[in-house]
Amino acid sequence: MLDLPARPGPAPKVVGPAPHGQRSQTAPVMLQEELWERMRALPFVYMAPTLVSVPHARSLFIPEGIGTGPREAFQAGREWAHIHPHHDGSLHLTLTEPLKDDIEKSGWGVRHPEQNTILVYGPRDRAELELVWQLVQLSYAYAVGEVS
């Protein structure tokens, strides 16, 4: 379990299930880009067209043979995370059920109504960027088999 602080303020407006995304309290583009650069720099990940999200979502995959994450650690194929276009700024991650519970209870995101992912709200400031970055790293660890 993760000790997440409560997310300040009301939850953003979310639409879905298809597309499933954030429609208010959009993360500043510079924070979205900083998060994306960190995500892309994780070992062994590569970017490819999403298998499950909207056009222009930026998706990350882990090659076959890297890590031992369970099937549930991937959204489709070897895609483990994607960040939505700038007008949205949220991201879908795969995480363990207890972590998804923690994220929902603390107000940092909501489960996808049809897929085994959680929508994590985009960071509104630098402190939130660091928290969301922690969640991304946990998702990555799940995909490579470091978290079960």
Rank of each mutant, 00 (worst) to 15 (best):
A141R: 14
E97K: 14
P19W: 14
P85F: 14
R23A: 03
W108S: 01
H20W: 15
T68G: 10
I103N: 09
E128A: 02
T50K: 05
I118G: 01
A76E: 15
W80L: 05
P8Y: 01
R40S: 10
E146M: 08
A48M: 01
F74P: 09
K100N: 05
L99W: 14
E33F: 08
A41Q: 06
R78V: 04
E97V: 15
F74H: 08
R58W: 00
V144W: 13
L95C: 07
L51E: 15
L35K: 10
A73D: 12
G109H: 14
T94E: 09
I103V: 15
V54A: 11
P123L: 02
Q32E: 11
R111D: 07
S53C: 11
E97L: 12
R71W: 12
Q115N: 09
Q32K: 05
P70L: 02
A73W: 13
R111S: 07
I66A: 01
G122Y: 14
P17D: 06
Q75F: 05
Q134Y: 09
A41M: 03
A6P: 00
V144C: 02
G77M: 14
L138A: 02
M1D: 12
A76D: 15
G65C: 04
V132Y: 14
A143D: 11
S90Y: 15
K13I: 09
M47Y: 02
K100T: 06
L99P: 00
H86L: 01
W80E: 02
R78Q: 13
L51T: 10
R71Q: 11
E37G: 05
G67H: 08
P12S: 02
A57E: 14
P113E: 07
A81Y: 11
L135T: 03
A6T: 09
F61S: 00
G122W: 12
L131S: 02
V144K: 08
E34Y: 09
H87K: 05
K100M: 15
T96K: 13
V136D: 05
T68S: 08
F61W: 08
D101A: 09
W108Y: 13
P17Y: 04
M47I: 04
S90A: 13
Y121E: 03
T50H: 11
H112R: 03
A81D: 07
G16P: 15
A141T: 03
H86Y: 13
L91H: 14
D3A: 05
W133K: 03
P28G: 01
P123T: 03
I66H: 11
L99S: 09
